[in-house]
Simulated scan of single mutants.
Amino acid sequence: MIIDCHCHTGKGDGLTGPWDTAAPLEKYMGRAARAGIGKTVLFSVFHSDYMAANRAVAATVRRNPDRFFGFACLHPVNDRGRVRGMLQEAIEEFGFRGIKIHRHDGRITREICEGARFYRVPVLYDLMGEVSVVELLATEYADVDFIIPHLGSFGDDWRAQLALIDHLARHANIYADTSGVRRFDLLQEAVRRGGAEKILFGSDGPWLHPGLELAKVRLLGLPPENERLISEGNLCRLISRVNH
C-alpha cells in the first residue's frame, strides 16, 4: 500500500492564502485513488487554534479510519504550557500517530520534543530552510524521529537541501519527505547518501498533485524493496512505536 505522509485538510481562519483558508479533499481523493495511494496522513492547515483544528481533523479521520492517519498540529508559541494536554487528547483519544510543526508559527521547542519523546511519535517539522537546527534536534533528542518535509526547503533553497542531505547521512533519527522537491538530482543524492530508509513519500496535498509527486519517487528507478520503503515502509516503522 502506498502512503502519502503529508496532506492538509480542514478550514483555517487566517484568510491570507490557501494555506490558512481551506484544504478541501475532494479532488485530492480522486487524484490519490488514480495514483494508487491507499492511505494518507492528514493534518490541519494553519490555524489560530490548533486544538479546535485537530478536533476537526480527528472527525475526518474518524469517518474513514482505514483511509487516514492523523497528525496533531501544535503552535510553539500559542500552545506553550498545554502541549502535553493537547497530545494526550490527540494521541490517546483520537489515535493520532505524529506531530506537525511549522516554523511559520514558531521554532520548535523542548516542550514539543519532550511530548514527542513521551508518546514516541515522529515530528514532521517544516523548518523553512533553517537546517542548522537539525544538528541540535538530532543530538538533544536522539530518541525522537524527525521528518523534515520538502528535503528542508519548500522554497527550493538548494543550499538548505544539500545541508539536510548531510544530516540524513549522519543522524539515525533524521528523515526527509519528498513533497515539493523540484531538483531531482538532489532527491537522487538524498537517497544515495541517506539511503532509501531515510526518505518518505509525501505530496503536500491537496494543493500539489499526489500522482505527480509520486511519479518522482518512481522515476528514481529504485529496486522494488527500496521503493516500498519510501512509499510506505518507513512511515509504518516510524509510527509503530506510538505510546497510546
Rank of each mutant, 00 (worst) to 15 (best):
A190C: 12
H244M: 06
D13H: 10
F68Q: 02
K198W: 05
F154D: 01
R218D: 05
S231Y: 01
I37T: 06
Q188A: 11
P206Y: 04
P224E: 15
A196K: 02
E227A: 06
D204V: 06
M128H: 15
L87K: 02
E111R: 05
F94V: 00
V133T: 15
F71A: 03
G155D: 13
P65K: 11
L219K: 14
A116V: 00
L87Q: 07
L214K: 10
G129C: 08
D79Q: 05
N243L: 11
S132P: 07
H8L: 13
W19I: 12
G152L: 05
L200F: 10
E114N: 04
F68R: 01
G98P: 00
A196G: 13
H209G: 07
I174F: 03
H209W: 10
H244F: 10
I108Y: 02
Y141A: 09
R183V: 11
E197T: 06
H6A: 00
I148K: 00
R110L: 09
L164N: 00
R31D: 15
E111W: 07
F46Y: 15
C236F: 07
F69N: 02
R241I: 00
V242I: 14
P76N: 13
L212H: 14
A138C: 14
R67Y: 07
R183F: 05
E197K: 11
L229A: 07
G129E: 10
E225S: 13
A53K: 01
L124R: 11
I101L: 12
M128G: 10
H209S: 15
G95S: 09
L229T: 00
R31A: 15
I108N: 09
L220W: 09
E92V: 06
R241H: 13
W158G: 08
L162V: 06
I3V: 15
L25S: 04
E197F: 11
A72F: 04
G233H: 09
T21D: 13
G70L: 04
